[in-house]
Design a protein around this nucleic acid. Structure first.
Lengths: 247, 247
DNA sequence: GAGTGGTCTAGACCACAAG
DNA sequence: TTGTGGTCTAGACCACTCA
């Protein structure tokens, strides 16, 4: 059973989607929402805090909350799993391992995955598609303690994340993503079916367990004509940060 | 005077920076922090919620909070202002208007800025640099009601955001950013001093006031060898969303 | 000055983690 | 079983917005 504040957040989200509250209009006061849903003010505040974090509404002391955006239901994508995201969009995800190899950790692998020198880790090159079209090339390094489980997954498994959850109970909980652009290498171009040196959207990410233990790090290259990223920011929120390239 | 929960969040942030709590270690329980700072549990929860949103710590019911990352003090960049961000990084920001022109709104301008057909708006092409090197080319469209104020800002003003705040009291509070990659056009290449067709990191954004009123929308192209973006995600947080290009 | 969101308290009960 | 975070309440006071 969902928490009461989540039910209220859902109800408000649906109301915004339904355009009961249009973009630019004002939300009812907290006290009125509290009365309407039969909860305390604190519970209402928890619900609207969720919508604020999602970028749906804005908040300022002394003034009523304002609706900033609508139609967001679709883009609550699960960023952790390409396959889950594709399904939510009504698309079919495919995946295929193009190369797989054990190597001794580099300095970069060690730093990102918090491993000891000399550890052997699994490198995987995986091509992923949407409705048959190649859209993403992943170069992933898995930590040693999960590598053997990854190694035995079949090459065309559509959702590695789901597979690891089913097989080992592993949950990917946190991620740090660094986004930039690169020119397609000869290999990138061949696999993604684009011209060499054409622009690709690159996301380098580290994913960790709920305990904060790094599981994998990956260099993901997307065809920018197929996939984009969207981020909300607000005056009190710093999920997105600009950084110089030398950091 | 800052709120008590902000002071506590600051103290915890500094403790993490100072490595009193190292990455991977556990934070003290809420009750202990409440006693230490002489506040109620609710106030402590508000403080740690801030750090969670920033990606510094992770939270799961039943287990102690875990420290996910450190050394974040530098990257609390103000995304709203290129100049403020540069100053925080210890760099000097420059800016120069390369072209400026009034045009009648297109369908896209109207949708993004919520304007009536036939409205005249100001288009500005601005080149921005970091320590003398060109790094960003902005193509910005300003809503009619702010355009005249923008028009009279001098061409080499380093911070338009600060200028608008000083002159008109305008605060840019919310933003929606869509990130992808494009090949440099001939014009882009010339101004950013890169080869034609080299990859650029593109951010298309709409910025609104605290009241949710759109102020400007912009196509920003960054040299990916100079600037990157970083985003935190967690299992209960969706500031970053993947989207297909056709939406 | 009335309305509204922001802060804070003190306490209760529940759900989950881990030994 | 115990510790810990998650949820929720009822009420108080303050800071800000807006008419």
């Amino acid at each position: 059973m969902a928490a009461r504040h989540e039910e209220i957040a859902d109800a408000l989200r649906r109301a915004i989607d339904r355009e009961d509250y249009t973009v630019g209009s004002l939300l009812p006061p907290e006290t009125e929402l509290a009365a309407r849903y039969g909860v305390s003010r604190g519970t209402v505040r928890q619900a609207v805090a969720t919508l604020t974090a999602e970028g749906l509404i804005g908040s300022r002391q002394g003034a009523r909350r304002v609706v900033l955006a609508g139609r967001r239901s679709q883009s609550f994508a699960e960023l952790r799993s390409f396959a889950q995201w594709a399904r939510a969009m009504g698309r079919e995800a495919t995946g295929r391992v193009m190369a797989q190899e054990w190597r001794t950790v580099t300095a970069e692998d060690r730093a990102r995955l918090q491993l000891d020198p000399g550890t052997r880790v699994l490198h995987v090159l995986r091509l992923r598609g949407l409705d048959g079209q190649p859209v993403l090339l992943e170069r992933t390094v898995y930590a040693d303690w999960i590598s053997t489980a990854v190694e035995h997954i079949e090459a065309d498994c559509p959702s590695v994340t789901q597979r690891l959850l089913d097989d080992t109970g592993l949950v990917l909980a946190y991620g740090e993503h660094v986004i930039d652009a690169v020119a397609a290498s000869a290999r990138d171009a061949e696999l993604l079916a684009v011209r060499r040196t054409s622009p690709l959207l690159r996301v380098r990410r580290v994913t960790t367990t709920r305990e904060g233990r790094p599981v994998e790090w990956s260099d993901d290259r997307y065809r920018p004509d197929a996939v984009r990223f969207s981020v909300h920011t607000s005056i009190g929120n710093n999920a997105l940060a600009r950084m110089t390239a030398d950091q």
